[in-house]
Design a protein around this nucleic acid. Structure first.
Lengths: 335, 335
DNA sequence: TTGAAAGCGCTAACAG
DNA sequence: CTGTTAGCGCTTTCAA
């Protein structure tokens, strides 16, 4: 069933049907009725592929993330799909599980113009792919990734401020002996969090012990990392009274390590995470954490992208989203 | 840069370039070289939309789920994207958050042939949409949804067997007083789980008390449901020594309810969940649960779909995936 | 082995 | 307001 069939059935010209369907020209009431009836009779639906070819667009946006299974990216994805769909775009999900081969094929996807634009919440393993993406000319926006060039705007949480909020909170609770547990800082965000921790402690004249700043070297399950690091911390003769973790998953791992060693949280040690994934409120005790507004970051990302696609090219190169400290039950005052 | 440009640049015919690119006819070595050079020089990439129009397909599959943020669907989605991408299809993600309006627009998407096929892991609010989907003629497969017609195959976990495995395990541990906590049974799977529980208890002559079978009426956050139901259970003068929950989220809520009331798990009460989402292993104590192989279910679903798209139309109407009991730390023996 | 030509289903001038 | 027509970029006969 093509538009041609509808036109024939309705006894009007092809273009009239098109105009009617697109509202691109006024159509007489009777003609309109005839067309409507024909469409109904033939159960006609316009073909998007043809429309896209003609309009030179795909009505699809790409979303590039490492892993949907990671609640952080899942929430981001929801933000992205919600606004994209609202604007009439479908979103093509590309989750690579950090496999180089899939990175490659995602880049091909955009090079072949299968998408009108792309939200990238991913740091490539293969550096050279950035270049191919750039030269494809497809508009992109980075989310949770710091700027890599001056082509694409970037939306990230203010990592420094987030860590400071956590630390200020712990200090206000009377803590001075504070540790830091981190997964391998393989992206800039994690580096910034660690630096912010160090800098705050130094600035405030708080004790800064090497044995309290535990940074994992090898990439593996982050809850396990937290668990290992938590156990390690427990082995020190002098323990900190609070720890901040580089992410909620690490925090949850540490929580498990503490609880399973009979160390009570928050009575014996306070814990604060980073991200505020759903999990944070589900564990016991529920986790006090620095919330990254992931959904909003996703939203903002696509909104920029949509603006760009509409020719408005004036979004800021770097947007810092304000993190929020979410107080739950894993912290307690001292003295 | 179109294929025409490449042909001109290489000094050959348009169709020769096409043949070369698709391997659909042999091409002389020199011609081949000229074409390759031209492609290189012009940085040409074939346009997918045009190809799709010609081939009358979209190379895209739709994935319809309520919510990516729900770890169950996230894992399923990963299974789907992994195999779809492997087969050269992109996947369009459609997450509705149970909004009728979005259901509607997803159905339009398939009616307009924006996808070659669709994996549906969703039960519509608006019943009539099933009909529209069916009459669109687009191949579909149901995952985690029981068959609705004889057009589409369905892949679900064997819910009855799952509950039985949980119960058998608890009984083997010496439990006889067992409760059941459930979210509102708004889909068949949940109904089946509840029935399986009831039927097992009756069959084995185990005590079946109304106050121990708590089924929430209103739809809301499932962890909260578990929490409420857990607290309610604690109010009974005689408590069960074990509970099985309709899902991990409910189980986690119950866990929180117990722990925060000073009831120890598993010492005072054993808990088993259903699903085995990541969360299950992250809480403390980690949750013993009935694993639904979600990733595999997603895989299987698309595999069926791909088979269908290749004309092989012989997949079973109903595939029951075997659930697996995952023993962790939330259960303990009695007597 | 290569090339000319006819569309795929739709949009958008343009003319009437 | 309605109709004619020329493509969008590619695939695929069919003939040379």
């Amino acid at each position: 069933m093509t538009m041609r069939d509808v036109a024939k059935e309705a006894g009007v010209a092809l273009s009239t049907v098109s105009h009617f369907l697109n509202g691109t020209a006024p159509v007489a009431p009777e003609t309109r009725k005839k067309i409507l009836e024909a469409i109904e009779r033939l159960n006609y639906r316009p073909d998007f592929t043809a429309r896209n070819l003609k309009r030179q667009k795909t009505s699809a946006l790409g979303l590039f993330i490492p892993d949907v299974t990671n609640p952080f990216y899942a929430e981001l994805a929801q933000g992205v799909t919600d606004v994209a769909q609202g604007a009439g775009y479908s979103v093509i999900l590309y989750a690579t599980s950090y496999k180089e081969k899939l990175e490659e094929s995602f880049v091909s996807l955009v090079e072949q113009h299968q998408v009108d634009g792309v939200v990238i919440a991913y740091s490539f393993i293969a550096e050279r792919l950035w270049g191919r993406l750039a030269s494809s000319g497809v508009p992109a926006v980075l989310v949770d990734v710091y700027p890599t060039n001056d082509l694409w705007p970037s939306v990230v949480v203010d990592n420094e401020k987030g860590v400071e909020k956590a630390l200020r909170y712990l200090v206000s609770l009377g803590h001075t002996d504070i540790g830091y547990l981190s997964e391998p800082p393989y992206v800039l965000s994690l580096v910034k969090r660690q630096r912010a921790f160090l800098s705050f402690m130094k600035r405030k004249g708080l004790p800064l012990r090497d044995e309290w700043v535990l940074v994992e070297k090898t990439q593996r399950n982050r809850v396990e990392i937290g668990f290992t690091l938590g156990k390690k911390l427990l082995k020190e003769k002098k323990r900190p009274t609070a720890v901040v973790a580089s992410s909620d998953l690490v925090a949850v791992g540490a929580l498990k390590a503490f609880l399973s060693s009979g160390v009570r949280v928050p009575e014996d040690i306070s814990v604060v995470g980073f991200d505020d994934i759903l999990l944070a409120s589900y564990v016991h005790p529920s986790l006090t954490t620095v919330r990254q507004p992931k959904y909003e970051m996703g939203r903002t990302g696509v909104e920029f992208l949509l603006q760009f696609l509409q020719g408005k090219n004036d979004c800021p190169p770097l947007t810092l989203i304000e993190p929020v400290l979410v107080e739950r039950d894993s912290c307690q005052g001292r003295g």
